[in-house]
Design a protein around this nucleic acid. Structure first.
Lengths: 358, 358
DNA sequence: CCTAGTATCGTAAACGTTTACGGAAGGCGT
DNA sequence: ACGCCTTCCGTAAACGTTTACGATACTAGG
């Protein structure tokens, strides 16, 4: 008696049907489609034509199961309320660069949004355990980040956008906070500023730590004593900018310049300054980090630092692939962690960076 | 002779190893993990404990292959340059609502970003052909959208965010453009405005078509003749707002109010108005559609319409599931297309909506 | 004609899981 | 003692691919 434990759909579109129709063995069809060498060029043509005609595409589950690889790369992002409200489409920008590299190797990119009510570590753990992706790109790395230890232990290839002190050795790409901070300070000092404030997120976040540290060193290089009072810890948002303005006004011997670690803060900052009768650019010099399209409409515009999102994405992709056995020899030039430079974009007129002595 | 065509990793973490360790059959382990009824409660405890200990999670490929389902829902988004620069994190906001529903059914959400240099139709075709997702959520639907025909033909369950004239019957959720336009016009008229301009995207886009149509009807309801000159077609961006300001200034018998179809346009509009010596709110009433966090810092704030992104996401998820056989009876209440209402958010002070006759 | 090599293809195992089915064991009523 | 029902578990097929290996046919060299 024949048992039919699993009823199959009547019109199944599998490689089997394709093979039957062509009257070729199923193995040959597979080899033809995958570009193997030992298949007659003429039969390959027939196979490809038939596949095109029937719209056949290999089922990913079957293929993954056999090869032990999914050909999918995951980009983990967090959808916390703060991220939703305040960050721009940073990730959408990098995905384009990622895909430009991945598509050359028939790799697909999926974004994995961690729900705001779930622990990112647990979320990542679930995703890698199910083996739905071959490799991961993680971002918003913390100074100590359990996710890194997890990926290292699970031997999942990954690259991190952002440094971390966790884990042994893994590859990362991070923005050149030191370079930006140094450049900003140098520029302000060269314009005559001595009391330079900085608005940064908590030092728990890697960015908040590294950036302020570089800011301090740059100041000391110019013989300016580091004043902790000038470090304003706020959220990286417009609201944070407004609060930074608040705190700035409280400081006695008011600073003549401020560096914003997140350019969107300028929107809130400007508002608070105007409320207090202070003209941004004239009474207070402002420099923003990471150019943000929405801030281009501020009056006056502010000097900032630009980053090419697609380029960054491509670099991330190549670095990731350099760490994967199959592609390592192709991208071995990128098999190292590195700092991503940013380009200084001076405001149209630097009038707002004038001498405070005037 | 035993052949070993496929070398297996020495320390394979499969259900088989788990079963051997427990000295239970592999089938029972599977049933225990999947919560089937015919398994002793005490053995189930043992299995779950061992799985937890070894960190075992079922391989998704194997499971998908067998069940013919991936338990993954795809959310297709486009990463065109315009989207990256101008839209906010709209999708990140809705993902949270989507996940809140999906997680109840062990469904995972992945975002599928269509590269800007690839045709969205071809991209979607690839994704569904590989059968990597069980269902899709598509957005930014065009008035005629080949993607819809594709999904209908492939019998992939899907829901669209946005109406379309394509395809036979499919379910969609769309924002209540008519309601918003009507409400905005009503409100302005009640304040004494008669010449009301509107800034909208091209009528090729569904939004640009429907919204302006509702605007026209609302005007006629109040006995105001529709003046095509007052319809300003611009991009949905800050830049578009600036250009809208440009065009507005060209209009003879200048309007006293303007409705922005995208609130971010207010940033550019304000700038242009200030350049021309026109005080927004005092000399020109402004209403924005779809509240945008970044515009909250404008002076003066403007009346707008609010939408709860997570709620919208949850509604999308439930509507999608209502169309899938397995879940249809649970969510049958949502098995219909519908209009998503928005809430009017008056500006702090409505002073800017004053009588133009004053 | 014989043999070795090459080009091409078919065969079947294996990937990890789920699940229909059968079977064993025990309880219970007749 | 027998039959029946319930509870629980093991067996093995099946999902759709890929691929190691063997088989065949043909070519070439001797």
């Amino acid at each position: 008696m024949i048992r039919i434990p699993h009823e199959r759909s009547p019109q199944m579109k599998g490689i089997r049907q394709l093979a039957e129709h062509l009257d070729i063995s199923i193995g040959t069809v597979s080899r033809a489609l995958n570009g193997k060498a030992d298949v007659n060029e003429e039969t390959r043509k027939r196979v490809l034509a038939a596949a095109e005609e029937f719209g056949y595409v290999a089922n990913q589950s079957g293929r993954s199961l056999r090869q032990g690889t999914t050909n999918v790369i995951g980009l983990m992002i967090e959808s916390s309320k703060e991220t939703v409200e305040n960050s721009d489409n940073f990730f959408l920008g990098v995905t384009d660069g990622l895909q430009s590299v991945f598509s050359r190797h028939n790799l697909d990119l999926v974004m994995l949004p961690c729900p705001s009510d779930e622990d990112p570590y647990e979320y990542l753990k679930r995703m890698v355990a199910r083996r739905v992706v071959d490799a991961m790109i993680i971002s918003a790395t913390q100074r100590i980040d359990k996710r890194i230890d997890l990926l290292v232990k699970a031997k999942i290839p990954f690259v991190a956008l952002g440094r971390s002190s966790s884990g042994g050795n893994f590859t990362w790409i991070d923005l050149d906070f030191e370079g930006v901070a140094t450049c900003a300070v140098d520029r302000l000092v060269s314009k005559g500023h001595r009391r330079i404030a900085i608005a940064a997120p908590s030092s728990e976040i890697n960015l908040g730590y590294v950036f302020v540290d570089a800011y301090r060193k740059a100041l000391e290089k110019h013989g300016i004593v580091y004043d902790p009072e000038l470090v304003i810890r706020v959220k990286s948002s417009e609201q944070g900018g407004y609060r930074a303005g608040d705190e700035l006004l409280q400081i006695k011997d008011r600073p003549t310049a401020i560096i914003l670690i997140y350019e969107l803060m300028a929107i809130g900052l400007y508002r608070r300054l105007v409320e207090a009768g202070i003209v941004p650019g004239r009474d207070l010099a402002v420099i923003g980090f990471r150019e943000e399209p929405r801030a281009r409409f501020l009056q006056p515009t502010l000097t900032c630092f630009r980053i090419s999102l697609p380029d960054l994405g491509a670099a991330l992709a190549e670095t990731l692939l350099a760490g994967m056995p199959v592609y390592s020899e192709i991208y071995h030039d990128n098999a190292h962690s590195r700092i991503w430079p940013l380009k200084l974009v001076p405001a149209e007129s630097d009038a707002f960076l004038m001498q405070p002595e005037a």
